[in-house]
Every structure is written in C-alpha cells, then in structure tokens.
Simulated assay, not measured.
Amino acid sequence: MKQHIAHIALVVKEYDEAIQFYTEQLDFTLLEDTQLSENKRWVVVAPPGANECGLLLAKAANEKQAQSIGNQTGGRVFLFLFTDDFWRDYNKMLAKGINFVRPPKEESYGIVAVFEDLYGNMWDLLEPKENKRVIRN
C-alpha cells in the first residue's frame, strides 16, 4: 500500500491576498484555482518542485475559523519548507520582505531559520543534512 498527504488546509482571510503572498513572495506555484460556489474556491499552491503535497488555501467560513488564522498550531512552527540551498532561499526571502522570527542556526540535522507567513503562521526554512532525520521539539 502507498499513501501520501495530498493537501494541508491553511485557513486564510482572503484567497487573492494569500495567492499573491505564496506565489510572489515565496515563489510557490499556483496549481489550481477553481470556483466552487459564490464564496468558495479550491485553491492549491505548492513550492517549486513539489510532487505530492500542496497547501489548500481555505478562506475562513465563520468566526470560529477566522480566529484560527495565523495560529493554527497554538504558536508552534506549523509547516516545514525544505530546500536544497538554504542561503539562496533565505536571502531571496529576505529580499522579498519575509519576516524571519528566528535567525539561521546550524543544528545537527541541518541549517534552519523560522519565518512567518502573511498571517503569522510560523514556518521552518530548512536545508537538512543528508541521512539525518529532522526532529524538533
């Protein structure tokens, strides 16, 4: 049996501002943007070269969902963006105005820095060392 996670839902305020952030500031690819109803779209973005998992940008449909925007994990790092060249991507992201909340650090598993998306969700930018499993607390 083979399984994989296809999408991770990320609650957003507005579709277009989220698409703009992910495609213009993080250089993600817009894989799909389909209107499902008057107020609902199916919007999927993914990092360059991603094969399986993408972010499903899901507009908050009610107040309870809106309260989770930017804090879907209670303040912990939410998503992990792996790269094959940390410094290339870190410098590009800085130039595009990405806010890093923790500076680059060499860890036993690789080079990592924490940044936040347009809503404040925290992400790791990580270039893992080969053959090292990434474990964070």
Rank of each mutant, 00 (worst) to 15 (best):
M1L: 13
M1C: 14
M1R: 13
Q3R: 14
H4P: 00
A6Q: 12
A6D: 13
H7Q: 11
H7I: 11
I8A: 10
A9E: 09
L10F: 01
V11G: 06
V11Y: 14
V11Q: 08
V12M: 07
V12P: 00
E14T: 02
D16F: 09
D16N: 12
E17R: 15
E17Q: 14
E17W: 15
I19R: 02
Q20V: 10
F21H: 04
Y22G: 01
Y22E: 03
Y22D: 04
E24I: 08
E24Q: 08
Q25F: 10
Q25A: 10
Q25E: 07
Q25L: 12
D27A: 07
D27W: 13
F28W: 13
L30I: 13
L31R: 10
D33Y: 10
D33P: 11
T34S: 15
Q35F: 05
N39A: 10
K40Y: 12
K40S: 11
W42I: 06
W42C: 07
W42H: 08
V43W: 05
V43I: 13
V43G: 02
V43F: 09
V43D: 05
V43R: 07
V45E: 03
A46V: 09
P47W: 06
P47K: 02
P48A: 11
P48Y: 12
A50E: 08
E52S: 13
E52L: 15
C53S: 08
G54I: 01
G54V: 03
L56N: 01
L57D: 02
L57Y: 02
A60W: 03
N62T: 01
Q65H: 13
S68R: 11
S68V: 06
I69Q: 05
G70T: 04
N71S: 00
Q72Y: 08
Q72N: 07
Q72P: 03
G74L: 05
G75V: 14
R76S: 08
R76H: 09
F78R: 02
L81M: 03
D84Q: 01
D85N: 12
D85G: 11
D85W: 06
D85I: 10
D85E: 11
F86L: 00
F86G: 02
R88M: 15
D89G: 13
D89V: 12
N91I: 06
N91C: 04
M93I: 00
L94I: 02
L94R: 08
L94H: 02
A95M: 03
A95K: 04
K96C: 02
I98T: 02
I98K: 00
I98N: 01
N99D: 14
N99S: 13
N99P: 09
N99W: 14
V101R: 08
V101I: 06
R102Y: 14
P103A: 13
P103H: 15
P104M: 11
P104I: 04
E106K: 02
E106N: 03
E107D: 10
I111R: 04
I111Y: 09
A113R: 07
A113K: 00
V114F: 13
Y119F: 11
G120E: 05
M122C: 10
W123Y: 09
D124V: 15
L126M: 11
E127R: 06
E127F: 01
P128R: 02
P128C: 06
P128G: 03
K129C: 14
E130S: 10
N131Q: 12
K132C: 12
K132A: 11
I135D: 09
I135R: 03
I135C: 07
N137E: 15
N137K: 14
N137Y: 14
